[in-house]
Design a protein around this nucleic acid. Structure first.
Lengths: 104, 104
DNA sequence: TCAACATATAAGTACACACTTATGCAAAAG
DNA sequence: CTTTTGCATAAGTGTGTACTTATATGTTGA
């Protein structure tokens, strides 16, 4: 299930931090690595997990690999929330308020 | 980190299904169990994980334990998405569209 | 051509997780 | 009181995960 992959990818704090970095701007693995206290293979493995979940995209240029966040990647997460709301008749209003707070 | 706990809780498909059940209406552990092909302890363990993440609340009545979804539980998830957007200057519009689609 | 570089993959390890069966414990039923 | 019921906890097991070091693959520059 793709939903599970997205949630699992986001469950790790390092991986979320990696995603936030490449969401700000495209970045090579090496530059990405410089921001974290883990080995280069660890970064590559996190990127592979994020890519598998559809959260990042890769651009290859010579020996460099540039990664960037893919906006469509969190769609499964948001549509799950949406479906979740469908099962939640009594409390829709409260949740609507939470969502409203997200649209400044 | 509470965000990690929420994402980890939602990463398991059985646990998401349990959450959806108790989101529809309050339910005892026994009734909940009848909808799944796992043992009663497994259900209790899933509920404990969901409760630890703040996604469900418990009401005790005699020897029965009734669980219901807690609407505030997904707030950490949504506020993470919100913060994620802040790191995402170029693609905000696309993401805004996704979020708009959630408010019918 | 070949040494340095950027990244990916392989293999190993320690720990977390999703389940199971067995047992504990309190409340209801008899 | 004793038994049954509803649920939680304990303990064990196989699988997954997040990391490491070591190595492989492809690319650039001397």
């Amino acid at each position: 299930m793709i939903e599970s992959e997205v949630f699992r990818a986001l469950a790790d704090p390092t991986r979320r931090a990696v995603l936030e970095r490449v969401a700000a701007r495209e970045m090579s693995v090496g530059e990405l690595k410089s921001h974290f206290a883990v080995s280069q293979p660890a970064i590559s493995q996190h990127l592979a997990a994020l890519k598998g979940a559809g959260l990042v995209a890769e651009r290859r240029e010579g020996r460099f690999a540039y990664y960037r966040a893919d906006p469509k990647g969190i769609a499964p997460l948001l549509s799950w929330v949406k479906r979740y709301r469908a099962f939640w008749p009594e409390r829709i209003e409260k949740l609507k308020d939470v969502l409203k707070g997200m649209d400044p």
